[in-house]
Nucleic acid binder design. Structure first.
Length: 274
DNA sequence: ATAGGCGCCTGCTGGC
DNA sequence: TGCCAGCAGGCGCCTA
């Protein structure tokens, strides 16, 4: 699911709803997510105050007082919302945390359970976690020179490079395809073959596409909703993703789909030449 | 060290 | 209508 624009939307939605609130009772489901639940969490979380809600790549970080960090990844089908506690509990809801206003509840729902929730007990441990995964720079902070060098240093296909969270954090299958279309680059092009101008075009395209998608509150194909349950709107602006067989908005040629880097990849053969 | 493939899960869609 | 293959916003582990 959720790539950077969706996660950013969740974070922006949750920030005013969670900041300053204290966590009350915690309930976890019997199913493990990607990582098993740790029973001790429930007691560790109770009474903590939310100091900050932020994003790093596709990770949501809820910073609590006492240097505790609840870190959530939405995987493919994760939903993190704050709803009235009286709202019926949807199936596949794995975590519920009551807030101290006595009415609202933070809920984590994840049908496919590819998501995760992890608790870090100090800032250094959280930092080590991101470091160990090699999480790359945020796309809006990408420095032109290091980006160019990074591309020059690998023979992999552009599609694979964009999906690699170590190269740039937050891009997934939708926005990789949309960015490559915006930059008029074939997804199968070898990164090392790009000219400096092409590399720069791609860097700008990624930022432009992600920025616009955030403005539209991300893309909802099936499961994704923002922090207050609202769907996204960027799917209405897709130019290649999931548009196989339809005309290219730029040249009218037919959009094709191919398997690349193990993922469904959409592009225009006319505008995106090898 | 790097790149590719598979498995983890559930649910929906389209073809027969 | 039913069945089954294929597909889905991701990532981590295993191989070569």
């Amino acid at each position: 699911m959720p790539e950077l624009p969706e996660v950013e939307t969740v974070v922006r939605d949750l920030r005013p709803l969670l900041s300053g609130r204290r966590l009350a009772s915690v309930q976890v489901s019997m199913h493990n997510l990607r990582r098993p639940w740790v029973k001790a969490w429930a007691t560790q979380l109770v009474g903590r105050r939310v100091e900050e809600v932020r994003r790093r790549g596709k990770w949501i970080v809820i910073a609590l007082d006492g240097s505790l960090f609840l870190v959530i990844h939405l995987g493919m089908t994760g939903q993190l919302t704050v709803v009235p506690g009286t709202e019926p509990v949807a199936n596949h809801t794995h975590l519920r945390i009551d807030l101290d206003d006595g009415r609202a509840q933070l809920r984590f729902r994840d049908v496919r359970r590819f998501g995760s929730a992890t608790l870090f007990t100090d800032a250094a441990a959280l930092e080590r976690f991101f470091e160990k995964s090699g999480l790359g720079p945020e796309p809006f902070d990408l420095e032109a020179r290091s980006w160019r060098e990074k591309l020059r240093g690998t023979d992999r296909a552009l599609k694979a490079v964009l999906l690699d969270q170590r190269v740039v954090a937050g891009v997934g299958n939708i926005y990789a395809d949309e960015s490559l279309f915006e930059a008029r680059l074939h997804p199968g092009r070898k990164a090392s073959d790009l000219s400096a101008a092409e590399a720069e075009r791609l860097r700008k395209a990624v930022a432009k596409v992600l920025k616009r998608a955030i403005e539209r509150r991300g893309s909802t194909i099936r499961d994704y909703v923002g922090g207050s349950g609202l769907r996204g709107g960027y799917q209405e602006e897709f130019r290649v993703y999931r548009r196989t067989g339809q005309p290219c908005p730029r040249c009218g040629a037919t959009i094709v789909r191919e398997r690349l880097a193990g993922r469904s990849t959409h592009y225009c053969r006319q505008c995106q030449r090898r």
